[in-house]
Design a protein around this nucleic acid. Structure first.
Lengths: 209, 209
DNA sequence: CGGTATTTTAAACAGGTGTTTAAACTGACT
DNA sequence: AGTCAGTTTAAACACCTGTTTAAAATACCG
């Protein structure tokens, strides 16, 4: 395996576990069994390494996600919100096939990126992958046309928060559930539980305050 | 003002903005116009300072929150989920009175603490303030008795995620909303928007998978 | 006032950070 | 075999981290 990929693999594992700020280049290169200077040689800087880690996942995820959402938009009948959110399942779970524990690792990274580094990742995703957001809002609009653009903006960010935050601590939650309810749940189980929740949240009646 | 309080004020501001890992003691003591060693003298360590910052808010919040939830539980009729979540409004907004921008600062801190430092804050809150959680789950159970303990566990954590994550980036979201919809929203406006969302999420029908 | 705690201060500590340098090595092509 | 680009390496760079020290300043109280 190439040095570049060894670094990416080690970096994504540590980033997901300890955050971007909390992970040093020496930890990464140590786990990857690679010289410290290799990061700056191959990626230029730590910040570029972070982008590369996220891009590797996004480039795998976004085409599948886009086509799933587009397919929903082009249907004749009106989709339900549950269907819209379910469109995420297959693309997300495919990451498990593409990389071991890919799904939860990616979602953890997403959670890290949203709180670490003062929103730099939010900027990166919305500017580099704008189609995903556009297709998603279009699908939601088709399922729930009465929702105003402003109300949708808020509810989609609430949803983003729910997903990302839940998944960024999914390991801990899965452990607690195993102890308290002696119920084994994996990442796809968590996804199945969260979808009715966010679908109902987005579908909530509009308050006439 | 005492050195101790000057440190706490500067620390909470920087912690909320840049996270616990992302804020150095030198930044804190610099902003507080206080000697660097004062932190270790008054608090012992950075970790203890973090606890002190959170405790100052929790000690103000938890009694009000507990009584609001308890009042709901002792009512004869069955409360709605909307009422349960609305019980948070007054105690949270009171933090604004107690400290400038107290509500959003506290919620941002909560968001930081959940993702920074590998869940240490989750442990701190659940062990130091267990009554808040107990009263909350009791209130939700009264409003929605059909919800099993396991399903409630998941949905409450989803809710926690929604709230905490939304609020930890509320400043950015409020800015975007102001630009895109020329609508001025403040922190209480965000709370009003998020409550129907989480209430509907928790109230979602139980999937019979 | 004098003496005892408490608090503040500058300085140093030991160790970690991302990044750069220049030399050494590698593998392919003429 | 010799050249040369691409890659790897150890070492050093300048700076930042939380914490500790011991001396100086301040506050308190009999």
């Amino acid at each position: 395996m190439s040095t570049k990929n060894k670094i990416l693999d080690a970096a994504e594992l540590l980033f997901a576990d300890k955050g971007f700020n909390g992970t040093s280049l020496r930890e990464i290169t140590g786990l990857a069994s690679v010289n410290l200077a290799a990061v700056n040689y191959h990626f230029g800087s730590k910040k570029e390494l972070i982008k590369a880690v996220m891009s590797r996942y996004m480039d795998e995820l976004s085409p599948r996600l886009e086509s799933a959402l587009l397919q929903l938009c082009e249907r004749d009948d009106k989709p339900t919100l549950h269907e819209v959110f379910s469109a995420f399942i297959e693309p997300l779970l495919y990451l498990n096939q593409y990389r071991e524990n890919g799904t939860s690792t990616f979602l953890q990274l997403l959670g890290r990126g949203y709180t670490d580094s003062q929103g730099f990742l939010r900027w990166f995703l919305t500017t580099q992958y704008p189609n995903v957001f556009a297709n998603f809002t279009e699908a939601v609009h088709k399922a729930y046309p009465e929702l105003s653009a402003e109300e949708m903006f808020w509810r989609l960010h609430f949803t983003m928060g729910t997903i990302v935050f839940t998944m960024s601590s999914s390991d801990a939650l899965i452990d607690i559930a195993a102890n308290d309810f002696s119920r084994e749940v994996d990442i796809s189980g968590v996804i199945e539980k969260v979808i009715p929740y966010v679908a109902a949240g987005v579908a909530a009646p509009i308050s006439n305050k």
